[in-house]
């Protein structure tokens, strides 16, 4: 039968494409969406702002890509890039790990801050990066964020922080915990000056970052389906000895419970922020 033949050819073709995809995946051209399981061509994914074209899942973004998406081209000027990781506990293997990560990720720390323009509106922008020790906050991250806040106060600019973090950085012990107080204190100055702070929560934002600057925005936005909370889901499950319901601690859950102002899809993020800044001029 002709149809059978066509089917067979198609199957063969499918198999060939599948194999090709598989080999391409090996060299990193393809990625599987862990939500809808669709195999996606990386270039297509990145062209779509790293959002799955099939199901809308927002993939995690590096600070470099995020800045590219939010800041007008060529306007980003870094602040505090010279502030580097410290090792106050002399913690075994910590600096070695940091050096390895720097090499691998080509970034110096878990946050990048700077001044920029967003649709022509001047702003201070801080973008955390989950590829660097889960975006955890040690002294360098706290100091860079604080400098960003102080710059916003000094230059009378609105502040936008994109959060992604596992919380305070364990390897720096109490010094990390104190960054929560330091960044929150700095925000009182911005508040007193009557300037706008927009906090954007992305997947995941937890621990000491949730319990400090992330939750202190005049306006708090979130990307869809981001995990946002203080305690991590595993810790809660161990404490209460039961499984958490589907959607617990996700953006939609936080919106329902009154802790964020709005869920914004990535394609609308830049224009939403620009609009909010204009409304506060």
């Amino acid at each position: 039968m002709v149809i059978d033949k066509v089917k067979k050819v198609n199957e063969k073709e499918e198999k060939r494409v599948k194999n090709e995809k598989a080999s391409d995946m090996m060299i990193g051209k393809w990625v599987k969406c862990d939500n809808c399981k669709e195999i996606l061509y990386k270039d297509d994914l990145h062209k779509n702002l790293s959002v799955c074209p099939n199901c809308g899942k927002h993939f995690r973004l590096s600070s470099r890509r995020r800045i590219k998406q939010i800041a007008d081209e060529g306007t980003f000027k870094e602040i505090g890039g010279d502030i580097v990781t410290k090792d106050p506990l002399n913690f075994k293997g910590y600096m070695k790990k940091v050096e390895m990560l720097k090499e691998k990720t080509k970034i110096e720390e878990a946050v990048k801050c700077g001044t920029c323009e967003i649709e022509g509106e001047k702003a201070v922008l801080a973008v955390m990066d989950g590829n660097f020790l889960m975006g955890s906050m040690g002294s360098a991250v706290g100091e860079r964020i604080t400098l960003a806040i102080e710059t916003a106060v000094k230059k009378k600019l609105p502040l936008v922080i994109f959060c992604v973090s596992g919380g305070a950085r364990m390897q720096e012990g109490m010094i990390s915990l104190m960054q929560m107080a330091k960044t929150s204190s700095a925000l009182t100055k911005l508040d007193k000056a009557g300037q706008l702070y927009i906090s954007v929560l992305t997947d995941p934002t937890t621990g000491g970052v949730t319990a400090s600057f992330a939750s202190l925005g005049d306006i708090i936005l979130a990307e869809p389906h981001a995990l946002i909370g203080f305690a991590g889901p595993r810790v809660i499950e161990q404490t209460i000895n039961q499984k958490l319901p589907e959607g617990f601690q996700r953006s939609e859950f936080l919106l329902e419970h009154g802790f964020i102002d709005k869920i914004v899809e990535r394609k609308d993020m830049k224009s939403t922020i620009a609009k909010l800044i204009r409304l506060h001029k």
């Binding site: 929560m180 929150s184 009182t188 319990a211 400090s212 992330a214 939750s215 946002i228 909370g229």
Partner: peptide, 10 residues
Amino acid sequence: QGEAIARNLF
């Protein structure tokens, strides 16, 4: 919980 702690620090 996170908001409550953050608010106190602030």
